[in-house]
Amino acid sequence: MARMIRVLVAKPGLDGHDRGAKVVANALKDAGMEVIYTGLHQTPEMIAESAVQEDVDIVGLSILSGAHMTMFPRVMELLKEKGAEHIVVFGGGIIPAEDVCRLEEMGVARIFGPGTDTGDIASFIKGSFPDTE
């Protein structure tokens, strides 16, 4: 039996707008993945611990508040501390182009901006785990 892709979609920090995160979570479900959505106002600690307990393959962070340069590195650092550096981190939100480059240099797999086709996100994730098909 083919392995299922498990994704954690999380909203770190204080911004209270999770329409985008929900649209993405739903689209990934429709693309045949198991998507864990944890709701608003998550700390990086909560996100990393949930990712480990759920044994997800990939974590998507939705950030609209401008805290991306803090949140992404912190989540990745915590995953590493918990022995889960194999978990891929990607994200989406309102993130300036120069920060996108810096985040990708830090090891964030991909940043999707406004207007992204959800199909592109699903293809990106499936392409990241060739052993699932």
């Binding site: 693309a31 045949g32 993945m33 864990i36 959505y37 998550q42």
Partner: peptide, 14 residues
């Protein structure tokens, strides 16, 4: 239909 799932119980368990 898709074989996927949206697992949302954690929202209430934060």
């Amino acid at each position: 239909f898709s074989g996927g799932a949206l697992l949302g119980d954690r929202i209430r368990m934060q």
